[in-house]
Amino acid sequence: MAESSDPRRATAPEPEPGRPLSAGVALLATAVAVINLLVGGTLTTVALTGHVLGAWSSPDPLSPGLIGAGMLGAAPALFGLARTRTWEQARTLVLPLTVVLAGLFAVSLLNAGRLYIARGGPIVSVLFSLGWLFVLGLLCVGAAVCLAGQLVRRSGPPVPRTAPLPGWSKPPLAVLGSSWLGIGTGLLLRPGFWADFVPWHTNRLDAQALGVWALALGVGVLGSLTEDDLDRTRPALQSLPGTALAMTLVLAARAPHVDWSSGPGLGLVAMVAGLLAAGASGRLLLRGGAGPGEAMRGAG
């Protein structure tokens, strides 16, 4: 296979721009997408029925439900990620993915004594928490191996920015990204204090897991801002509407349990709405402005 491609390389004009996406990262994205679809779908469905299913016991089904919603919402974008060709196009989604995997695994390990495995409980929950740890551990190891393989790949000439973000979008994106990053870091590092800013009942593990997700969302949004190229941030933009819609669904189903009139409640509404707006406007811009750009890429 390598031999058959060499003569083609000799006649091809120049190497492709950018760092080619490795097969390992593409496979990781597909595997995580499938797992997210199954596990996220299960968690979301169970939370919508008002029961708690998770690796640890939660006072309210909202927390595991939102974690599941985040997983489910990101799945379509992860399937799309496997089809991108360069690392530059993929990294805005791969980096938040790494944050989620490493963060959830670390949070689960650090609070291992609070998981159902250690505490005991209904047999289904105990088995779920065992599977949760095992799969997360496997994915973390896989992510480490695949990313190492990706980062040692040789890069071609730098990819030009074909569709920079419009000027008016940058301040709102900065505010959105910073708010998610901020609340995420706070929940992760000092859950005891920052959990009060979550407008429903959470315990320590819930707060930290939600913090990991918020951190990942913030990294994704701020990362898109830094890339400053609509084409490169396509996977991340694709994940925003799905995630926001899934979160809205869970929040709407459990609306009586959320303190909407408080400051944090209003802040949550604004942040989720911001995600929806960012995703929607990104799609419109991609479809409208990148039309001629895509035609050029297809021809040459």
Binding site: M1, S5, R8, A12, E16, A23, L27, A82
Partner: peptide, 19 residues
């Protein structure tokens, strides 16, 4: 099998009509 498919996809050059 999925990995083999990804390797096959990515070893092919970018879709240029000439190539």
């Amino acid at each position: 099998l999925l990995y083999a498919r990804e390797v096959r996809r990515r070893s092919a050059p970018a879709p240029l009509p000439v190539a």
